[in-house]
């Protein structure tokens, strides 16, 4: 499939460094936006270690909110624009490996592991062994992340 894209569109798979950097930026942005209303509360918890030890309900709600906020963010932006903010900054684009336009289901399926850290880990480890650096669920969804000259307008 990667070869097909290369041939047809002159695109190459995104490098791992760029993909991780883009993901990190998206992670930071979503965390900041979602956590902002909880700012005073997070400060009140004190040190990071006490945050990790806490069994507080608000913290649990916030964790879920961030996890599903990330899923929402990746799914919608990649479906509608083929890029998240992080990917746009690194000029990466998400495309369907069948050459057609990416649909909602593909976008959702490729990102469904984002809220679940253990599954995401397996999903990411798979990238290192797969040509084209596809995550496992990107293979399931038929999705590729490629270098792109397309930037946000």
């Amino acid at each position: 499939m990667v070869e097909y894209i290369k041939l047809k569109k002159g695109l190459v798979p995104a490098s791992l460094v760029k993909r991780f950097s883009a993901f990190l930026i998206d992670l930071i942005i979503v965390n900041l936006v979602v956590s902002l209303p909880f700012y005073n509360y997070l400060i009140s918890l004190g040190s990071f270690s006490s945050v990790l030890k806490s069994n507080d309900m608000v913290l649990t709600i916030l964790t879920f909110l961030i996890a599903f906020g990330l899923l929402f963010y990746f799914t919608i932006l990649e479906w509608k624009m083929g890029q998240t903010l992080g990917k746009a900054l690194f000029r990466l684009k998400v495309i369907s490996s069948n050459g057609k336009e990416l649909n909602f289901f593909q976008s959702f399926l490729s990102n469904v592991t984002v809220p679940f850290s253990i599954v995401l880990l397996v999903d990411v480890i798979y990238m290192f062994f797969k040509s084209g650096h596809q995550r496992l669920f990107e293979v399931f969804a038929g999705v590729l992340v490629v270098e792109s000259k397309v930037v946000l307008k």
Binding site: V33, V34, S35, L36, L65, Y73, M81, L85, A88
Partner: peptide, 16 residues
């Protein structure tokens, strides 16, 4: 596209 991203982030913020 920038406007779309901003709207999406504002939406996330409002839900939060």
């Amino acid at each position: 596209k920038w406007v779309f991203i901003v709207i999406l982030l504002v939406l996330l913020y409002l839900v939060s």
